[in-house]
Design a protein around this nucleic acid. Structure first.
Length: 736
RNA sequence: GCGCUCUUAGCUCAGUUGGUUAGAGCGUUCGCUUCACACGCGAAAGGUCGGAGGUUCGAAUCCUCCAGAGCGCACCA
């Protein structure tokens, strides 16, 4: 028996060494597996792309969960002989990364983006991204992720940029990408537009003010934003509202807080007669619904009263004031003029920007959009339909199943996707403009996709929403738009595993992009894990100081222990409470396994694998055989939380507690046949247990395997899974 | 407003889509310097499965309603 078993298991020392050996073997790469004969060139492929972590710092426990689950699936398939590919990569995460760096710069040097300029800021961001990347790669390896590093990708590298330009052009040519003046979500803090999905609504107390524009204005209106009323062009009432029917069509002039306004009364069904006074002041430039009302009644959109810095831009006392200040001034003015009729507290949910926390200011802006309701030429379908169909037909299965309802519900409410951002870090929009004269848009030429050679063209200043490039991830990582062998072999990918919180952001966009570009699904199954929370059920966050760092955890308890703690009993779609105590429990389990190995190796020095098993031992073995089948079925049906739990239970409470205890008197006895049979049995049980546990606890199982006389491959990582070809029970439904 | 999920032992959760006395981990209590392991071993206590109906030979599991908790989307003048 090797000496190492005389001491308690030391994960810290073992894990980094074992990972280095795996990496050196090249066996994370399926091509190398074929070359070395651990699988064959005609074996079925199995592929997963790693959801690329943002290069915004370091990985957290959510990432560790993702890695534990994906690596378990990947290792299981690899052992079953599939040509298994797990593609690593990182995401430039445009706005997230830029805002982290800008904050840091402001703190360190007091400088903002304009002090540095585009090139200067990008240099800082790229340096930061490179450092984050290296940290992240180190963390991925620490967790034991068997990723094929030879295929590593970055959403902003050359190959991926080519894919982005290519797709942009295709969508533009198909009329799905368009430039339009529309109300967008403007983040005054981040100084950029954001998409609807990047808005976080926050409930806040607010006041609802009821007032009239002037003494002779017939209808009182209610608003929470009196300062925007200087931009009003109309008052809308419900068509059936008898109170106001007589005023519809009439027009009024007023001087509202120094600003001359002209108001027309219109009837529009969008108005809720029960809310406030049943009359809405219509501010087309600063509200989506008002913009739509203005559209329907041919009212002007042009009066903009708030600028990009959320400051007033009207003549008079309000000029240059922040909206919050202006609000107080308007209310004071209304009070002085005795126009304010009522002031009541209400709760309203305020739109804030996910990354900067800035309060969203709806503004009309010329931006780029992806049309989701436009029929695609030659396909007769809209992007919305392309997103719906594969999930509806079962071509894509979501685990847990109930999330497809959430998915459908989201698509039903989906509007055109604003993809241009006024930030500098990211894919520059591949559009060039040339104007015949220095001003105006008159006669402007446009070039999309490839930079024009002639002089006089200038590229669009904006960059693309980061999710545009991550939407291409399953095929851009495989070398598209080149017609690569990887695309042919590994696409569509088999599994997409990620958190349910980015179902819309990412999963839906991948389906959209892949269906449009390749006319196929990006993946066959989506496995959604839940959020990792702290022991009290709170979200882990830096500000709360309750987050666990996967690196610290691995150093303290071992990556194997962390992985088991993340996987056992953790059903998909459900949040998970995590604590050091839980992880500690699995460190103890690792040590238990270590001692099981020690006991067995100690007692079977000359075991003969040809010795016949006694009837009793055959029976003991058949129990593990049954478990192996069950575990295999669990893996196939995405019940890895059960598979891991069963193996834990078997190793500890069956193998150690019962079988090893029963073996002691046998080894102490004088029945030679029974002793020989038992020695062979124990080795076989341990061998099989190691194989079954390897996807969940790769390091310790590999380390023990290296000392096993039953070892039949260089690494356990590529050893045969005990159940290979038997027919397995597959649930029709794989929801839970 | 539309939609989703959860409610099972003191705590955190399973329960593989209806099948014998409902499980695990942690915790608690009691006992163990047993030569694989104190990162351990043995034993014990602890649940009318949120409530009320219904379907069924049979329900924690399916249906309806009710109560509580969480979440998503929309609205938010």
């Amino acid at each position: 028996m090797p000496e190492k078993f005389l001491k308690p298991y030391d994960p810290a020392a073992t894990e980094s060494r074992v990972y280095a050996e795996w990496e050196k073997s090249g066996l994370f790469n399926p091509d190398e597996c074929v070359k070395q004969g651990v699988t064959t060139a005609d074996a079925p492929p199995y592929s997963i792309v790693l959801p690329p972590p943002n290069v915004t710092g370091r990985l957290h426990m959510g990432h560790a969960l993702m890695l534990a689950v994906e690596d378990a699936f990947v290792r299981y398939r690899r052992m079953r002989g599939f040509r298994t590919l797990w593609v690593p990569g990182t995401d430039h995460a445009a706005i997230a990364t830029q805002s982290v760096v800008e904050k840091q710069l402001k703190k360190d040097t007091g400088k903002n983006r304009h002090d540095l300029g585009r090139e200067g800021l990008l240099k800082h961001i790229e340096a930061f991204a490179a450092e984050s990347h290296d940290t992240i790669v180190g963390q991925l390896k620490t967790m034991g992720a068997s990723l094929d590093w030879s295929r590593e990708a970055f959403t902003l590298d050359e190959v991926r940029s080519r894919a982005v330009r290519n797709v942009f052009k295709q969508m533009y040519d198909a009329g799905l990408i368009y430039r339009g003046l529309r109300i967008v979500n403007w983040d005054p803090k981040g100084q950029t537009t954001i998409s609807d999905d990047e808005i976080v609504y926050e409930e806040r107390p607010a006041k609802l003010y009821t007032f009239r524009y002037s003494k002779d204005f017939p209808i009182p209106i209610a608003t929470t934003r009196p300062e925007t009323k200087v931009g009003d062009v109309a008052v809308a009432v419900h068509p059936d509202d008898a109170r106001y029917a007589g005023f519809v069509g009439k027009e009024y002039d007023a001087l509202f807080c120094d600003v001359p306004i002209h108001i027309k009364v219109v009837a529009d069904a969008a108005v809720d007669p029960a809310f406030g006074t049943g009359a809405v002041g219509v501010t087309p430039a600063h509200s989506q619904t008002d913009w739509d009302i203005a559209d329907r009644h041919l009212l002007s959109h042009e009066t903009i009263v708030i600028n990009e810095y959320a400051k007033m831009m009207v003549p008079g006392r309000l000029e240059g004031k922040k909206t919050s200040e202006a609000r107080e001034m308007v209310v004071a003015w209304l009070t002085d003029e005795e126009l304010l009729e009522k002031e009541e507290p209400i709760t309203q949910s305020i739109a804030t920007a996910e990354r900067t926390g800035g309060i969203i200011e709806p503004l009309p802006k010329l931006q780029w959009f992806i049309a989701v309701d436009t029929k695609i030429p030659g396909r007769g379908k809209t992007l919305k339909e392309l997103m719906l169909e594969p999930v509806r037909s079962g071509a894509i299965k979501i685990v847990p199943e109930y999330f497809d309802k959430t998915y459908f519900h989201w698509i039903e409410n989906l509007r055109d996707w604003c993809i241009s951002r006024q930030i500098w870090y990211g894919h520059r929009i591949p559009v060039w403009y040339r104007s015949p004269d220095a001003h105006g848009k008159q006669g402007e030429e446009i070039m999309v996709g490839i930079e024009p050679k002639e002089a006089g063209w200038s590229q669009d200043e904006d960059t693309l929403d980061t999710w545009f490039s991550s939407g291409l991830w399953t095929f851009s990582t495989l070398g598209w738009p080149e017609d690569t062998a990887d695309i042919k072999t590994y696409h569509p990918t088999d599994l997409l595993e990620t958190g349910y919180d980015i179902l819309f952001f990412w999963v839906a966009r991948m389906i959209l992009m892949t269906e449009f570009v390749l006319n196929t699904v990006p993946f066959k199954t989506v496995y959604l894990h839940g959020l990792v929370r702290d022991a009290q059920g709170r979200k882990m966050s830096k500000s709360l100081g309750n987050s666990l760092d996967p690196l610290d955890i691995s150093a303290k308890f071992g990556a194997d222990a962390a992985r088991m703690a993340l996987v056992v009993g953790n059903t998909p779609g459900t949040d998970l409470r995590m604590s050091e105590d839980k992880i500690k429990g699995y460190k103890h389990f690792a040590n238990k396994l270590w001692n099981i190995a020690r006991f067995i190796l100690e007692n079977t020095p000359n075991a003969d694998t040809n010795t016949p098993l006694t009837a009793e031992d055959k029976e003991v073995f058949s129990k593990l055989d049954a478990l192996a089948r069950e575990v295999t079925e669990d893996m196939e049906n995405y019940r890895i939380y059960l598979a891991a739990e069963k193996l834990y239970h078997y190793a500890w409470h069956e193998l150690a507690d019962k079988i090893l205890e029963e073996s002691k008197p046998i080894f102490a006895g004088s029945d030679e046949a029974a002793r020989a049979s038992r020695a062979r049995l124990l080795l076989a049980l341990l061998d099989r247990t190691l194989r079954l546990l390897h996807p969940f606890m790769p390091f310790i199982t590999e380390e023990i395997y290296q000392s096993m006389p039953t070892k039949d491959s260089e690494f356990l990582m590529v050893a045969k899974w005990p159940i290979q070809s038997e027919k397995l029970k597959l649930s029709k439904s794989i929801s839970r």
